[in-house]
């Protein structure tokens, strides 16, 4: 791998996804490094979520190779795995654009369910648990401790026994991140984690993501429209437009890339704008588009 100093965690090569005649992703290749936050941005319909769905096994890519360079388990080819095995064996966790919590279950239960596979082994696939063996009881209290750790992190300890569906929106977003982290992933994929958050909440989210990167030393992959979040915390940005990769680099490089500005603002509109306004917008790398 011809990678920059931080070791690559994920290599996407020639990823193409077709739905019938529609090409959602067209020959996209990029790398995401370990212990870095990689953001995937692009206008609506650019294929960002499709990339995520290929990575996490919800779609089978038409063409392409997705290699996870797992720090402990070596290289794993994600495109060959069934959906749930990617989370189970390759330790890739994800959150969803439209929050998918277990609404009728409590906050704590959501976090314990996330540790399903470890607990299944500890309960000897239910038999030991039915008999009430100590091994399962210990594993369960460990699971609760891990859940408590993440609850402290996202500030939900007091609401641990609430139904997840009753939480305010911002709390649900953070709980989803906590739930994904409870699976102990090496790569965490976040699909628009800041959508619908107010500025204070999105600031808290930034801090949480930086904490995960720095303290837990894992790679994060992020789809986001909120440029404050993207520019504020990303180490590396990948820009998609109409399923094609149009830019790939550090935030500064991407911000200055004319192709990105074109994708976000459109060419014709550029001419109508007064030059100083266009320059300001370019500096902001485009407003959060609607």
């Amino acid at each position: 791998m011809t990678a920059d100093p931080p070791a690559p965690l994920l290599t996407v090569e020639h990823l193409t996804m077709r739905f019938g005649g529609l090409v959602a992703i067209d020959d996209v290749s990029f790398q995401a490094a370990d212990c870095e936050i990689t953001a995937i941005i692009g206008p609506n319909g650019a294929g960002k979520t499709t990339v995520f769905n290929c990575l996490t096994g919800f779609y089978k890519p038409t063409v392409g190779r997705l290699t996870l360079h797992h720090p402990q388990k070596g290289d794993i080819l994600l495109e060959r795995m069934e959906g749930f095995r990617i989370a189970q064996k390759a330790d890739v966790a994800r959150t969803f654009q439209n929050i998918r919590l277990f609404a009728a279950m409590s906050v704590l239960e959501n976090l314990v369910v996330a540790q399903h596979n470890a607990l299944m082994r500890a309960s000897a696939y239910t038999v030991g648990g039915l008999l009430g063996l100590a091994r399962y009881r210990n594993a369960e209290s460990e699971a609760v401790e891990r859940a408590r750790y993440w609850l402290d992190r996202v500030g939900l300890t007091d609401r641990a026994d609430w139904d997840a569906g009753n939480l305010p929106y911002g709390d649900q977003r953070r709980l989803e991140v906590a739930r994904a982290m409870c699976t102990e992933p090496v790569l965490l994929c976040l699909d628009e984690p800041a959508a619908g958050l107010n500025p204070r909440e999105s600031q808290e989210l930034n801090e949480l993501l930086l904490f995960i990167r720095d303290e837990h030393r894992i790679g994060l992959l992020l789809i986001e429209h909120d440029m404050n979040v993207v520019m504020g915390i990303s180490d590396h940005i990948v820009v998609l437009d109409y399923g094609r990769l149009i830019s790939d680099g550090t935030p500064e490089e991407v911000r200055a890339d004319p192709a990105v500005i074109r994708a976000y603002l459109g060419e014709e509109e550029d001419e109508d704008l007064p030059p100083e306004v266009a320059r300001d917008l370019a500096q902001q790398a485009g407003p959060a588009e609607g």
């Binding site: 996490t56 096994g57 749930f84 095995r85 989370a87 189970q88 277990f102 369910v113 399903h116 596979n117």
Partner: peptide, 12 residues
Amino acid sequence: EDEIACRSLGIN
């Protein structure tokens, strides 16, 4: 509650 979320958590 949610089958898709289950799959994303590695539940078979």
